[in-house]
Design a protein around this nucleic acid. Sequence first.
RNA 1: GCCGCGGUGGCGGAAUUGGCAGACGCGCAGGACUUAAAAUCCUGUGGCCGUUAGGCUGUGCGGGUUCGACUCCCGCCCGCGGCACCA
Length: 926
Amino acid sequence: MANRDDDFQPVEFAKKWQKKWEKEGIYKTPIKVDPKKKFYCLDMFPYPSGVGLHVGHVEGYTATDIYSRYMRMRRFQVLHPIGWDAFGLPAENYAIKTGIHPRETTEKAIQTFIEQIKSLGLSYDWGREIGTHRPDYYKWTQWFFLLLYKKGLAYKKTAPVNWCPSCQTVLANEQVIDGKCERCDTEVSQKDMDQWFFKITDYADRLLKDLDKIDWPESTKEGQRNWIGRSEGAIIKFSIFNFQFSNSNEEGYVEVFTTRPDTVFGATYLVLAPEHPLVNKITTEKHKPAVEKYQQAAKKKTALQRSALEKDKTGVFTGAYAINPVNGKKIPIWIADYVMMTYGTGAIMAVPAHDQRDLEFALKYGLEIIEVVAPKVAKYIVIEKSLEGNVERMLAKYGQVRIIKEDKDWGKFFEVNVTYDKEGALIEFLKANLLKDSEDGGAWYADSVGTTNKVVFRGKVFNVLHKQDLEDFKEYARSTGVPEDQFVEPQAYVEDGVNINSDFLNRMETPKTKEIIIQWLEDKKVGKKQAAYKLRDWLISRQRYWGAPIPIIYCTKCGSEDKPAIVPVPEKDLPVKLPEDVDFKPTGESPLKYSKKFHKVTCPVCGARGEGVVWRESDTMDTFVDSSWYFFRFTDPKNDKEFASKQAIKTWMPVDLYVGGAEHTVLHLLYSRFFTKVLKDAGYIDFDEPFMKLRHQGLILAEDGRKMSKRWGNVINPDDEIKKFGADTVRMYEMFMGPLKDAKPWSTAGERGVYRFLKKVWLLHQKVTDRKPDQTEERMIHKLIAYTSKGIETLSMNTVIARFMEFVNHYSKEKEIPLSVWKRFLLIMAPFAPHITEELWNQIGGKFSIHQQKWPDHDPKMIKDDQIEIAVAFNDKTRGTITIEAGSDQETVWQMIQHQAKFAKYITSQPKKIIFVKDRIINILI
RNA sequence: GCCGCGGUGGCGGAAUUGGCAGACGCGCAGGACUUAAAAUCCUGUGGCCGUUAGGCUGUGCGGGUUCGACUCCCGCCCGCGGCACCA
């Protein structure tokens, strides 16, 4: 049969084969699995949005599809499932607008997704499809909640939460971006509410440590590390001057967390967060009004105001004092909103000389500044014209001198590196010998990177240790006509160094000092070593309808009217189904609250019932709870006795390859790891990381280089592309665009190029012959097989496709292609372009299906050439190439070169030296 | 500010991890086929000089190591992503 241009109907035969694949069920997950040959290849399951599949989905899904198909051909048993992360706000918001039930819109969207995915020829096992919104799924989401509750990892507390006034719901910290709701960009405010939390903080250390054992992108691991935010330090107790807790005889104290216990001698005041519970107890009568006013104001501030944009530090004095445990010094206690209640102990010891924030605060309010760490070496910059005589020689007495630049007006600029013990002498010397106020700028300055609280200017040294000093300095500088923007603002010295003004710590160097002071604090029982984390417990309550209900019942009979007992729904009563009789309008409370049916319940413990006596929790769970365990469900999706059987989990987990967008760096990936660890501790599984190997797909940008967006009208819809060029083109083009992880712009012209390539493949069929391949051809296909295998395994599909193109270009120029070579080529291209290869396989009488064939072998011996072309360089410049026998030695190659006329002109004399790298290069130095 | 990633032709991107920079594709230019267009095929294509042979130069910038650097080291510049008053 002669394939011609006109016969190339990729869209048509794609449909034909898709139908046949489905009918024959060739992508069903195998039942008998050899544990050593299992492969779990997972995509991040999509939220079934009404817009349908995006080209970004196609990229990730194609990559895992190729991988799965390849592994199947390598005779691995592959689990490659898909499902729907179906709960969530968009469907509910749509319901609020239109009154259409979220389940209806969601199921419809799922149908669209299924059709789209099928039209791409992705090899999912549809028998394992799951949806988080279906009761047989969320039954187990609720089961997980109960498991966490049983293990003491789910708890309820009143807490200030992030409240989005527009979505009328609580947000997790992770969902607040720059103080705004990640979904609607509305500014988030603080609100006290009764909320359910998962105690992920219990797992902070393990979540951090276990990152070392998984193969994930470094950036993603780093993202998680930052999010967990572990810092080593100490807790130090400062007793409160003349104060006792009212309910005991114990002396009152404040605990602070610090990462710099070595600077404790420089602690000149304490700062508590405005909402710190001690504040009201210690504030003196005189200061109460100001303190309360400040607390009120702080409470009103949004997260946005309180953080980044609010640079100016504010605070008020409480009237109370604390005692610094290392020197007995009486220091004031302030409150300020630059201290967060949610981190550390909600209180700090302020060391203004060595913390930028404390320094700004201290300068503003005139608080004491004591330097306790000096840099081992300070840098001073002195200008030549500011001194008389040999400046370099004079300065050399005080430290290492280096010329950093020369200026025709000012002369040389010297940098003096002075050790801390000589710094005082240098300053004295400069004070005494500087030319003062001379017209041409007898000025000099010191930019002492270390002790920058000193500003040295025109022969005067300003020790900016107090607010007044700074003002004095500015005043003086201004009077000399220096523009305001030239002023050096004092910088706290935050680096390591040598302790000064620190009694028994003096002359010790920083990392060591920390150990010593911590030991001292522990001995005196006024402090201890401690790590602090940025990670906070995971708030999972949502005042929303379209989510899994929290399986909790409140009973006033088991508890009391004031404090109803929390009664978990017994497992046998799961799932707690979403009620139908609801109104979707957001009120700030869950719509479930207004469902009569839903609320009517009998206490499973005491059997009490009745309105206001027994009722259900009406909040639903954050959708991230649904997606924190779905990968387990895929191993056993129909099980109604367990979330998944031990056997199924043992067979398939952990996931061998997980591909998805980088936007889930912290949320989903961290929560899934947390759930996995909880399951391990509860004895359900025996591993503690769910995803062994993770890769991200990059963003696909529009043709104009911008993000695809309805607003710009530059969105590429995969459906349109499939209709125009066929699924194989779309798949292969997306793989050919560039490395999977990179962001890259779409190019319709580039897509056409891939289409042309596939057409060439199609036409190659005419040239198939029974002739046996010769040695060169045999080598070529062996190399291609080896390259393709490796390329798929490293997910560098783009270079594999480039090799395919080279191969096809080669045979397009030949008269014929041997059948045995052609067959193997079709086999290795099958994972990339499943439809066209199936069609061509069929045309040469191959057994159905090509996708069930074995991956062709390659002989490692065959991929090494025996004739090799190497570069010939003279004096480092490549002047040509020479074909040699593989493994030839230097002498042989050199002889050959001397016999070739084209190199003769370069050989002007005996070589001084010859550099020879076997089978690579020969470089002759003349 | 801190952390992470990156910077190679007109464009997307290759480069066996220190050994012929620019594979493959797009675009562009010239040519073939055609009444014409599309499709297809052939040739060329980093820059500069040269009619050719060839020469010089070239991987963000400045240094260094090396026979040899896109690749390793030091110092910068720019872009992207994340975190951000975290003590």
